[in-house]
Amino acid sequence: MKKLLTILLVAILALGLAACSNETSGSGEGSEVDVSRVRLVIGSTSTGGDTYQNADTISRYLEDPLGTNIKVDAVGAVRAFQELGKAKNDGSTLMFFHDMAYLGVEYGSIQENNKLENWTIGPVVSINPGNAFLAKGDAPYDTMTESAEWLKDNPDETITVAIESGGVSEITFDGYYLWVKEKYGTEVSDRIKAYVTGSQEDKNQALWDGNADIINGSIGGNNEYTKEGVEDDIKMKFLGITAGERVEGYDIPTFAEQGIKVDGKEFVFDKEFFFLMPKDVEEDFASKLDEAVAEVEENPDYAKDLAKNAYITNYVPADEAIAYLLEKRETFQNIIKNAPSLDKITN
């Protein structure tokens, strides 16, 4: 027993040393909050995805001005909403997510009672402009527009697009599909099929297996496969991104540039990340969080950290964020209404 205790003691000491370098100290400014620990639940279960990275980056910069510790917990969408629903109103539990938060409700993959109106919307903090579509390196088209042209010129061919259902991936696919339908008619759009699957790895594998011709992906996740020197059988190329503007350093045309329009409007989809708080969250906390975020957004180091993975800053203050997101939701509600049922376009 004694030995066991000694071992434990040594262990604790060693751990203490290891942990010391990680302690954060409050800076003693006016925007400090009362809670000593904030739990930031995110809508993804992955610690390798863009939600985690954006949450991690912003929380690292927020710890100081807020004078608190922030712990990012990757619990997934359903559980994150659950936790937020149970959370106290002192700001000790917050949620961080992207547009899927309301798109999921519209598509039915997230329960209706989690709609935006039932939460206090915090500030929008960043954008992942990298949501993209890709094809194999030797595909006979280089852009999304060309793929539609190619379908038109080759009436015996089909194009299968690998997507994830119920979120950003599906909405951007819907945009492409509706545009093809508007411009080329159902004769062409009926030959677009969907291959619905899960993670990015699954979508990549679908492309390599030949189960899909085009896949939804991202600059961060797929850029490595598009580089010079990658073997031909796994080589990919970007066909376009859905963001409003090109991403610096990448020569990938946007959907809008390619002339992809739905209902006469350019199709633009920026994947934006924002905070969600309990409905009855203390006003004091909410405003302090907003102030702190505003301050961080000015910090060039924050922008530099985001840029490592091709993300960009994008601050919408909390009081404008709700109107902003509701408007965005309305735009895409229309698309979802007209979108094809996946039952019809999967095989």
């Binding site: 262990a11 604790i12 203490g16 739990r39 712990k71």
Partner: peptide
């Protein structure tokens, strides 16, 4: 106490 300190405080486990 050991679990609380080790996991809750040092390792920051929820």
């Amino acid at each position: 106490l050991v679990i609380w300190y080790l996991f809750g405080q040092l390792f920051d486990i929820t």
